[in-house]
Design a protein around this nucleic acid. Structure first.
Lengths: 173, 173
DNA sequence: AGAAACATGTAAAATGTTACATGATTGT
DNA sequence: ACAATCATGTAACATTTTACATGTTTCT
């Protein structure tokens, strides 16, 4: 699946929760989907224009609203196979050439990675608290599943970075 | 950092290990860096042409060889800040709208994710065995660090998927 | 000889980010 | 009044993938 359908998926999905302006949509994507998805303004507005032309969303009182056809399309898009993004991990690319980069710089990279993972965990913990406090939103359990995914990855990253530091410079961590 | 420098980094890094043809370079990037990096042919050949024009690599007996200037450039590139790629996780994007997608489809997605993580773990285990069997390559410890990163992530993903399945449909996993 | 793999490259299409332009509304 | 935020959009640029074209070498 090319990228465009996935942008449509994110946009229609967000609008299926509630009608929004394009600006608010962008904010919702950053704040709510931000831990596993991103779209830039340059993508969102053209996408909205396209979806509107196709009758999948309609502008109602300044806000974009998903139509019945839009909900059908959303359901279809959700069933398309998950697209595998090619991996591109700049941290590992640098560590791989560690002997050229130099040991100290590598240790710095690992410390940064550990800090970053900790920060992510803190953010996710506060999001989790918020979501758990909510009354029974129909998607609450799914929200929690995606939060758990982020937590699992961040914990794994933090642990890997700490253990690597320890194995590379024992006692210096 | 824009993408181009990172492509240069991957290409120069690979050529710093040994001289190669463009074709072999692509194969090396797929097989050796494949778990955390990727480049397509359409990127590699233009990059090689550019690097050759800049005197960072030279074509020697049919194979591209890194020059002294190229090694200096590689060292510089390795010290550039790690670029954060915007997250784009199609699996989580679908699970987030789980109530629209439907429970059964979500469980299928989670089962696939668990299987995929297991397969990744198996691949990484065999790569690890190979690397560990090697005599003392100067970069061996760094290779193992990158392998450990992949294993940590895959284990976390497998566990998250299994636990999510269990919590969503207890006893049915 | 024929098939498969090696090797190099380009063109087109799709994708995506960034910066800019413009104006309305809201809070201090 | 002024600053900040809300709101919509576009144009330029950069990136990336995909498909195609072309020829060589190696293996069976």
């Amino acid at each position: 699946m090319s990228r465009r359908p996935q942008t449509d998926l994110a946009v229609l999905g967000a609008l299926s929760v509630e009608p929004m302006t394009g600006y608010a949509l962008r904010a919702a994507i950053v704040s709510t989907l931000g831990h596993f998805w991103s779209e830039s303004f340059g993508q969102i507005y053209p996408a909205l224009a396209r979806l509107e032309a196709d009758g999948l969303v309609a502008k109602d009182d300044g806000r974009f609203t998903i139509t019945a056809a839009g909900r059908t399309r959303l359901r279809d898009l959700l069933r398309t196979p998950v697209e595998r993004t090619p991996p591109r991990n700049g941290l590992l690319l640098r560590l791989f050439f560690g002997s050229t980069l130099g040991e100290e710089a590598c240790l710095d990279l690992l410390r940064d990675a550990a800090d970053e993972a900790q920060a992510t965990l803190a953010t996710l913990a506060s999001i989790r608290t918020e979501v758990e406090a909510e009354p029974d939103h129909p998607d609450k359990r799914w929200f929690l599943v995606t939060i758990a995914a982020g937590e699992a990855t961040a914990r794994a990253q933090a642990r890997w970075a700490r253990e690597s530091l320890e194995s590379l410079s024992p006692g210096m961590a």
